[in-house]
Amino acid sequence: MIGLKRIGEMARLMVGQPPYEAYLAHMRQHHPDRAPMGRVEFFRDREEARYGGRNGGKCC
């Protein structure tokens, strides 16, 4: 079955927030030369990406 952690992850992704840890892991692995965004900066970046309108609307 699906654990509490996953449910939390699902709830955050429903409003457009992917897991910060996955982003950090990605940056460490592929771009160790670049400083990753902080948690808050990441949150705002994703907020703008979801709601800015560039990604299309939500459904009817």
């Binding site: 699902m10 992704l13 429903m14 992917p18 996955a22 982003y23 892991a25 990605h26 990406a49």
Partner: peptide
């Protein structure tokens, strides 16, 4: 890229 392109658990993605 950890931002728009993130491999996601299928149950989590179903909810999204």
């Amino acid at each position: 890229d950890g931002l728009d392109y993130v491999p996601t658990d299928r149950r989590v993605l179903f909810g999204h």
